[in-house]
Design a protein around this nucleic acid. Structure first.
Length: 318
DNA sequence: AATATTGCCAACCGCGCTGTC
DNA sequence: AGACAGCGCGGTTGGCAATAT
């Protein structure tokens, strides 16, 4: 597969998909002799008309006995998303936390599944935050505006206490609208407060609308306006259920960081030179429902830290 | 049934890093 | 210090299969 399948390069070495016979030769050789650290010499000794690089790739991505094949589990999916937000496209670093999975497999899974999944959820697959591009924002704000009208209409009917089919339908829609508005608001608030400490200007009229009650002097840019949740008809327990409902993605649109401990210096090692557990079993800090929206201090995907983590991984592999 | 489109993923490519001389 | 070889990584390609038209 890939380029030049079933072809030969300029030096006469075979390229393209591996045949079962080639696989057998490579596996037999490595089982008997190991691959040492000299992949270049291996194919000649083993009797394969392949370059060393091709042999290494075939072994590490496909033939290794400890490779786990098949569909990714929900847990693996969540872990990949969490690790990707933390590490960026450091596939080998991510793969080091998923036993039996190769960087190539995870990369493919990300590009073909998870990336699209995040996009469908309105999240930027690079930053894992709500998308901020103009078109998407415009649509979100339009949706909020429409929902607001629906909400207003439903509340009017509710106050009049008319008991008819139309009212029931509208009230159901109203509940959905409330939930959707709340989720969108939380998303946007999380983004704006972590990014620039200012509310998105276009949201000010919405938040100042009488529907949500007035903004008080105490309501900072990092908090929800007074009366916001109450105006949506949500009490505390409903809010907790909403925020921490156990969907395929915890906390709705935000990946779950509650149980993820960010490595302090490099990928895998903490201050005590111990391996950092990332499977969600070592959460030491107490969590509150709204912690779901308190994003950890993340290193940016382009920060020098990643070059460092990459090196650690390289060294571990060597 | 034939053709076009889309999704998947194994394999390749090029770059950068490290170690050796 | 510089050149070179070897290796690993992330990005990309393109053949095949599944699905849609």
């Amino acid at each position: 597969m890939g380029r030049s399948r079933s072809g030969y390069d300029e030096s006469g070495l075979k390229k393209g998909p591996w045949t079962p016979e080639e696989d057998r030769i490579l596996v037999d050789y490595i089982n008997k002799n190991g691959h040492g650290s000299n992949w270049r010499a291996l194919p000649k000794i083993a009797g394969l008309n392949r370059c060393g690089k091709s042999c290494r790739l075939r072994w590490t991505n496909y033939l290794r006995p400890d490779i786990k094949r098949g569909k990714f589990s929900q847990e693996e999916e969540k872990l990949i998303i969490n690790l990707h937000q933390l590490l960026g496209n450091k596939w080998s670093a991510i793969a080091s936390h998923l036993p039996g999975r190769t960087d190539n497999e995870i990369k493919n899974f990300w590009n073909t599944n998870l990336r699209k999944k995040l996009l469908r959820m309105g999240l930027d697959p690079v930053t894992h935050r709500p998308r901020l591009d103009h078109n998407h924002n415009h649509n979100q704000l339009q949706l909020l505006s429409n929902l607001q009208h629906l909400l207003l209409a439903a509340n009017i009917l509710n106050n009049n206490n008319n008991n008819n089919a139309l009212l029931s339908t509208l009230l159901i829609n109203s509940d959905n609208a409330k939930l959707q508005i709340l989720q969108n608001m939380l998303q946007i608030l999380a983004t704006t407060t972590t990014n620039n400490n200012n509310l998105a200007p276009n949201l000010e009229p919405l938040l100042n609308h009488q529907q949500f009650g007035p903004l008080t002097s105490s309501s900072s840019s990092s908090s929800v306006p007074n009366g916001f949740y109450e105006s949506l008809g949500l009490n505390e327990s409903m809010l907790q259920n909403l925020i921490c409902s156990n969907d395929s993605f915890p906390c709705q649109n935000q990946p779950n960081f509650q149980n993820f401990e960010a490595p302090p210096h490099d990928d895998n090692v903490n201050n005590n030179n111990e391996k950092v557990v990332v499977d969600g079993t070592n959460s030491s800090s107490p969590t509150t429902p709204l912690n779901c929206y308190s994003l950890p201090n993340l290193v940016s995907a382009s920060s020098p830290h990643h070059a460092c983590s990459n090196k650690v991984n390289n060294n571990n592999n060597n």
